[in-house]
Design a protein around this nucleic acid. Structure first.
Lengths: 216, 216
DNA sequence: CCCGCCTTGTCATGCCGTTGTTAGGTCCCC
DNA sequence: GGGGACCTAACAACGGCATGACAAGGCGGG
């Protein structure tokens, strides 16, 4: 992502020529939003970003686990940028103007440095759930889940193949001192079931709780 | 175990709040020694450990059978640590600084992933009963049992090849101060028998009680 | 700054499985 | 033949659970 559209296009095209898939975002907010859902290895980040300053965005990225590596582009006229950029957690920096081959080199290096052993992705019964990226997929079809729905599904997958009672779910997903007489768990599980579609994945064992159906 | 005493205390206390028993060791040698005798499920291991480097200790742990799972903490400033930490056999990693809830989540996940923690599956006379999944199978055919039925079958399988009197079952499965004149045990055993199908698995010894029939 | 959508919790309602009881029925032993 | 222990069927009550509708709160867009 770049502040200068033309430059950004050139960079993106050049990287694609090197065989890397590239997405573009021209402002910080768009970038932050799309980073939630994509699983890129490296973010090329211009420090002078409209909409949301590069520093802020960088911190947002870095503070999350499973984050991509960050290569920050800094203006040559401000040498101090390098320092603060790095202290903010960027993994590498490059001063503008730069030679394009060097950018490619560094992106490659960062991609290589990144551990491709992703922290546990939960899989069961045709579902893949990534707790870090907050994405869930069933049979290749992406699911759009609300926070609670996602948390419930995550808890059930972690417990798989065991059960979780409504009470336990209430403690883990909701607050630990939640009203024990609520039936929001039932409702949320119901909504989750509808979004998950057929065939049913969440089974109810009366008097025991819920569990993920199927092999495992 | 941590290199930073203060951080270690915080982490330990936080994990205890989550209901996990925690021991602390502030250097590698102490840790290695105590790990011989304790039966912990998960080791949270700082890579930069005084006395004995985290890598070495990790290898020592991993090479042993019945080992605990290892969650290695790596310094954020050295991304390469992640890779080698995992190649050394750590089961998960977490870069410092980290969000505490995430540490809790990962420790939980690891504890659950540990293979030999799985409680035993009860088997006898062509029946497999998994107390965790709360599933029961006869000759490959899954059974759908109610809570009471499941509990009765579980109790009988545990007692196998011995007997359980109706009175004992009443105490164990039902409340201990249940009406001693009730007939519900007989009825429940009857319903269970029907669901189990042929040939009969539960035998009655008049005046003594019930037992699982057959080999074991 | 206001408006509308999405999320989330609550309530009311209806359904279905579970469960204990009651009432016969059968078998065996005395 | 009588009695006791056990089995089974039918029944009714209870509780848990699913579902739809509704309202409050949050968040983003206009």
């Amino acid at each position: 992502m770049e502040d200068d559209h033309a430059l950004a296009e050139v960079v993106a095209e050049g990287l694609r020529d090197q065989g890397m898939p590239v997405d573009l975002a021209h402002d910080g907010l768009t970038a932050a939003a799309s980073l939630d859902h994509t699983g890129y290895d490296v973010v090329v980040l211009d420090r002078d970003l409209p909409g949301l300053h590069g520093d802020v965005l960088c911190r947002m990225i870095v503070e999350r686990a499973g984050r991509p590596m960050v290569l920050m582009l800094t203006a040559a006229s401000a040498p101090g940028d390098r320092v603060s950029g790095l202290t903010l957690g960027a993994d590498d920096y490059l001063a503008k103007p730069f030679h394009f081959p060097e950018l490619v080199l560094r992106v490659r290096a960062l991609a290589r440095r990144r551990p491709d052993v992703r922290p546990p992705v939960l899989r069961a019964a045709g579902i893949e759930l990534d707790p870090v990226r907050r994405t869930a997929v069933r049979d290749g079809r992406p699911l759009t889940l609300s926070v609670k729905e996602f948390a419930v599904l995550e808890a059930l997958l972690e417990a798989h193949p065991g059960h979780l009672s409504a009470e336990t779910l209430l403690e883990r997903v909701w607050d630990e001192n939640a009203d024990p007489f609520t039936n929001t768990v039932t409702v949320t599980v119901g909504r989750l079931r509808r979004k998950l579609g057929e065939p049913p994945i969440i089974a109810t064992t009366p008097g025991i709780g819920y569990r993920i159906r199927g092999s495992g």
